[in-house]
Design a binder for these strands. Structure first.
Lengths: 348, 348
DNA sequence: TGCGATACAGCAAGCGCTTTCTATGCGCTA
DNA sequence: TAGCGCATAGAAAGCGCTTGCTGTATCGCA
């Protein structure tokens, strides 16, 4: 039925061992023999049985990439960058690896299940992207899983995610707090004093850090925050739209709206427009991430650029052992404030 | 070192066979025994060895999803939908499957390599999304691969991709031609007679079909197309920007620009704005796909909505054998014209 | 009480590959 | 010419799991 190594061996008149060695190329095989084997492989259209070789060799060429939402370019960009460095087909590394991206949908259970699945497959490496849940129980469970993975020899890299001490995982963390602070300081510098904030989902590290940065900026400038100025919601456009209407309802005198990310900011812009407000004349808007579409918003979005592709690529290289891990296993990746048309001085 | 089935068996005082059966749950096991086994599994923190069981059972729970560009929401949305139906962790199906998305980057070689890798892993199913390359050699190679996969029992579904006759693959095809035609007819109906077209990369089915639809509309209305009115380029924003400038250079009298997709259209809008032209007063713009951000363009983009999520979900269900394949193995998914602010009557 | 049917549990034979160890042939050197 | 080492090929023992087949109690029923 299916062609096996033994069939190839028989056809090439050599032992299965030799065929295996030709295919893996890590043992001397005479050129003439090799050629004969390759010819047989070709004629028989032989395809190696992955599970069998993984079992025998006790290793696999699977690399897992966990993302919260695959439909969100934030993750897509990182995942693509990781993958390009993993050395999957066409990647710059030699060995062919199956880089697989797993969509957790932001669900803790799925995240854990995917990690188990990856562990089960004896993945060569795992990259976790994006913010983590702050639920203590879940964090402990993930940490335990990660420790087990690293102990089993799987390289684990966190990309855009806070460190997980004691797990052996390498962390490339985004400086969400610093970025958030810089962004809000920019607005304050422009003269804003009443700023609405549309935060991401609660219990997420990203949400909290960005919000903390925002508040730190307010505090640093002696602006007392009004509890009505903050609204939480998911990381999507609709949330931004609704949250903005809500903010306006709570305090129509706001002169700026800071969103948890660009997608949310887009929703905010739409809500403002629909409310008859002009950006930035009436209300300034700011996002976070600098996704590709942000520059095309009208006016273009003021935001914090996160080097998603660079960070992903670095994470990929580290996962493949082609680049050294940062000292201490932790590196902080900073964002860059991008001032564009959506922010301006408030009306006097 | 690592815990194996045998260890669990020893601890639970049963045979390995019994443990296996408890874990796979497809054979009667006394409740008391099951409990003992589960307890041992838990205590030992046992994780099944994926490759080993795949080898022994000659099946795997891997499902591959091929996409051209994972950073593009067009693919992200489809991939996410497929995945949610695959029954990966948290999906609505019971069995835990590892749904993996593979990023081909639009490269034929990578596509082929990923298919081989998936074949090697004895994937349970494969979903290919997005347009195909039109290179005859490559198409034949892919077709051969697909045939081999289906013959080996892997279910293959094409989502948003033309059928591959004789391969046993199920196809859910987007009606790119019809959508393209409808879109251009809308513009013609508005009074446009000189329409620029920014096509996607050559040698792609999607590119060709959309362009054909556009031309069919022109022909149907007796508009003779000027060769200068079409420019090809990749599916990205920058391409749209540059192509638009080029079109304007070639024929400043164009009153509408039709883009191969929304991302390209965004670039076109930016180019028009930067050229001091107003949308739609001076030039109308239209996209394709109706990605989430399109409604946030200013003015909102007139485009053709493709039910990406629905199609992906359906593809996923078919791949899992939870929904019947369309008769003949081919179904056409139609788009819906979304008329928005970016298109209007040309100035008299 | 006796007999077939039933419900579990175990044995053991692989699944297709990798890899260690061993065998063989050959070219050289002394 | 005998002896040694190197280059290469093969034999065979698993890797950890699944599953067909073979027991062996236990149960129902007459």
């Amino acid at each position: 039925m299916t062609v096996t190594l033994a069939d190839v061996a028989a056809r090439a008149q050599v032992s299965p061992a030799t065929v295996s060695r030709v295919l893996n190329g890590n043992y001397p095989v005479a050129a003439s023999t090799r050629e004969r084997v390759l010819k047989a492989v070709d004629e028989l259209d032989y395809v190696l049985n992955g599970p069998a070789s993984a079992l025998a060799a006790a290793t696999s060429d699977l690399v897992g990439i966990l993302v919260n939402d695959i439909a969100d370019p934030f993750f897509g960009i990182m995942a693509g960058a990781v993958q390009s460095e993993i050395g999957g087909p066409g990647g710059r590394a030699g060995g062919e690896r199956l880089a697989v991206v797993c969509n957790t949908g932001g669900s803790p259970e799925r995240e854990l299940t995917y990690l188990t699945l990856l562990q089960r497959q004896r993945a060569a490496a795992v990259v976790l992207t994006g913010g983590a849940m702050e639920d203590a129980g879940h964090q402990a469970a993930v940490a335990a899983k990660l420790r087990k993975l690293t102990e089993a020899g799987t390289r684990v890299v966190l990309c855009g995610r806070p460190p997980a001490p004691g797990t052996g995982a390498i962390a490339l963390t985004f400086d969400n707090r610093g970025g958030g602070r810089e962004l809000t300081e920019h607005l304050i510098g422009l003269g804003h004093r009443r700023l609405g904030y549309i935060a991401g989902p609660e219990e997420r590290t990203t949400t909290r850090h960005r919000l903390e940065g925002h508040r730190a900026a307010l505090a640093a400038h002696g602006i007392e925050e009004d509890a009505r100025w903050t609204v939480h919601g998911p990381y999507d456009r609709q949330s931004g739209y609704e949250a903005t209407l809500e903010l306006l309802r709570r305090d129509p005198s706001l002169t700026a709206v800071v969103a948890a990310n660009d997608t949310v900011a887009l929703g905010a812009c739409a809500a403002l427009r629909d409310s008859g407000l002009r950006i930035p004349r009436d209300v300034s808007v700011a996002g976070f991430d600098d996704l590709p579409f942000s520059i095309d918003a009208v006016p273009a979005l003021t935001t914090v650029r996160l080097p998603l592709a660079e960070a992903g690529a670095r994470a990929g290289r580290i996962a493949m052992g082609r680049q050294e891990a940062p000292i201490g296993g932790i590196a902080t990746v900073r964002g860059e404030l991008m001032v564009r048309g959506s922010s301006g001085a408030p009306r006097a």
